[in-house]
């Protein structure tokens, strides 16, 4: 189960699994938000409720990061769940993690 919530512009939260089984759905939803929300300065992405993440999920995050960068939008992740932190550290993608000082 993957859930993307989008309470206010620029604020998003992911919950559940983000693996090969969910990436299509997640991709679809993220693309829709991206389409409607290209005017904000930053996206704040809450990763605290992500239970499972695999390389397909990471790839999706990377593509999101790339697209946002292209539009001049900053991607700020926060509260990464343990599974997220572990995998992103394993793959040395620390730029997708919040900077150490900003950790909540």
């Amino acid at each position: 189960m993957f859930q993307l919530s989008h309470p206010t512009p620029g604020n998003l939260a992911m919950a559940g699994s983000l693996t090969i089984y969910e990436v299509s759905q997640a991709h679809h939803e993220l693309a829709a938000v991206l389409h409607s929300e290209s005017q904000v300065n930053a996206w704040r992405l809450d990763l605290s409720a992500v239970e499972e993440l695999d390389t397909a999920g990471v790839q999706l995050l990377l593509a999101l990061h790339k697209s946002l960068l292209h539009l001049g939008i900053v991607l700020e992740t926060f509260n990464p769940a343990a599974a997220v932190r572990e995998l992103l550290e394993l793959l040395r993608l620390t730029h997708l993690l919040p900077p150490p000082a900003a950790q909540a």
Binding site: V23, H27, H70, L90, L91
Partner: peptide
């Protein structure tokens, strides 16, 4: 040392999320 190569990864709009670009 580990570097993830994502040079061919397209932007979100063109992405096929189930393909591997890495």
């Amino acid at each position: 040392h580990l570097a993830l190569i994502d040079d061919t990864l397209p932007a979100l709009a063109e992405l096929d999320p189930e393909s591997c670009y890495l």
